[in-house]
């Protein structure tokens, strides 16, 4: 995938213009150059056919209408889950991410793709995303600034379960 910011290996964001994952609408549309194991396939296809491949893909993506609890049986077979933001104003994937992290205890890579923009990166990060495939027409160095956020975080979140009132220092 292109234009990726990653916090998977470090709390300092790492940038890659192209990484090894390849997201496809359908397996049959994938080009031969991509090893099957590095495809990010639709979850529906995963359910239908993943078991049939010798080298099964290690990732799938969900549309934002899918109940994330459906993925539970497969979590130990994969490395990456990608969630779609068809429009940045459609906030369903925030809740999907929170549920994956806090209820299903998913510890692997959680990637945002689609209409992923600088000004929402902090919100995505706090909901549990740790990599971001920024929309390809956007400058990735500029987008990275979106991770800075605001230092006061009242509510708890997927990456910081305690709300401020439990973290608050007496000043």
């Amino acid at each position: 995938m292109n234009n990726v910011i990653s916090l998977v290996n470090s709390s300092q964001p790492e940038i890659s213009e192209h990484d090894n994952w390849h997201l496809v609408d359908a397996i049959e549309n994938s080009e031969a150059i991509w090893p099957k194991s590095m495809l990010v396939i639709p979850f529906k296809e995963w359910l239908e056919s993943a078991e049939a491949y010798a080298t099964a893909p290690k990732a799938f993506w969900l549309d934002n209408e899918t109940d994330v609890h459906l993925v539970e049986p497969w979590l130990d077979k994969i490395e990456l889950i990608a969630l779609n933001f068809p429009k940045f104003t459609d906030g369903r994937a925030y809740t999907q991410a929170v549920e994956l992290r806090t209820q299903l205890r998913w510890r692997g890579e959680l990637r945002a793709f689609g209409d992923v923009l600088r000004d929402q990166l902090t919100h995505m990060h706090r909901c549990g995303f740790n990599s971001f495939a920024v929309r390809e027409d956007k400058d990735i160095l500029d987008a990275m600034k979106g991770l800075n956020g605001i230092s006061t975080r009242y509510s708890g979140s997927a990456i910081e379960p305690e709300p401020l009132f439990r973290r608050r220092a007496v000043i």
């Binding site: 906030g91 929170v98 929402q120 706090r126 909901c127 709300p163 401020l164």
Partner: peptide, 13 residues
């Protein structure tokens, strides 16, 4: 007010 202010999950309802 505090809980809802910039609560990241609920900014694009």
């Amino acid at each position: 007010r505090q809980w809802s202010t910039i609560n990241p999950e609920f900014l694009f309802l």
